[in-house]
Amino acid sequence: DYEVGESVTVMDGPFATLPATISEVNAEQQKLKVLVSIFGRETPVELTFGQVSKI
């Protein structure tokens, strides 16, 4: 299970290999909103559970 505030690594898509912090969890739809730090700015990205891995 994923929790808000948890650190994960993006495994898929254009942000693969980047660390991210979970900002929202939708367990019903198996989706997460995460904040990816790009060029010093936090960018919100919506991903599925399968696109991230716990650190």
Rank of each mutant, 00 (worst) to 15 (best):
E6V: 05
K54V: 05
P44F: 15
E6H: 06
V8D: 01
V8L: 04
A16P: 02
G5L: 03
V10T: 01
I22R: 00
T43P: 03
Y2V: 03
I22P: 00
A16K: 12
T17H: 12
T9C: 11
K54S: 06
E3H: 14
S53V: 12
E28W: 08
Y2A: 02
P19F: 12
K31C: 07
F15Y: 15
V36Q: 01
A16N: 07
T48H: 12
S37D: 10
G40F: 04
S7Q: 14
T48R: 10
L47V: 11
L18A: 06
F39H: 13
E6Y: 05
P44N: 12
L47T: 03
R41G: 10
Q30I: 03
G50R: 10
F15R: 02
K31P: 02
E46G: 04
L18W: 14
G40E: 06
G5I: 00
V25W: 03
T21F: 08
T43N: 08
I22Q: 01
T17C: 12
V34C: 09
G50C: 09
V8A: 02
M11N: 10
E42Y: 11
F15C: 06
P14T: 07
G13A: 02
I22L: 03
V4G: 02
L18R: 08
N26D: 12
K31W: 12
F15A: 03
L18Q: 08
M11F: 04
Q51A: 06
K31N: 06
F15Q: 02
L35T: 10
V8E: 01
V8W: 02
P44W: 15
E42C: 12
G13Q: 01
V45N: 02
V4D: 03
V10H: 00
M11S: 08
F49P: 03
N26H: 11
F49V: 04
D1E: 13
I22V: 11
L18D: 02
K33R: 10
I55F: 10
V10L: 05
V4Q: 05
I38T: 08
V10W: 02
L35R: 06
F15E: 01
T9N: 07
V25K: 03
T9Q: 10
D1C: 11
E46K: 04
S37P: 06
G50E: 13
T21S: 05
S7L: 14
N26R: 07
V4F: 04
K33M: 14
R41Q: 13
D1N: 13
E3F: 14
A20I: 03
V45H: 05
V10Y: 01
K54H: 08
K31E: 06
L47D: 00
S53I: 11
V45E: 04
S7F: 12
Y2L: 05
E42N: 08
E3I: 13
V45I: 12
N26K: 07
T48S: 14
V8I: 09
V34R: 00
V34P: 00
P44E: 15
P44T: 15
D1A: 13
E42L: 13
K54W: 05
V36C: 05
I38A: 09
G13R: 02
S53Y: 08
V25L: 06
L18V: 05
E46H: 07
F49Q: 02
A20S: 04
P19T: 15
D12E: 14
V10G: 00
V45Y: 06
V36M: 05
T17S: 13
T48E: 11
D12S: 13
V8R: 00
V52T: 03
D1H: 13
E24C: 10
S23L: 15
K33F: 09
L32P: 00
L35A: 05
T48D: 12
E3L: 12
I55T: 11
E28T: 09
T48I: 06
E6D: 14
F15N: 03
E28V: 10
A20V: 05
L47E: 00
S37C: 12
E6K: 05
V52I: 07
S7H: 13
D12G: 07
K54Q: 06
V52L: 03
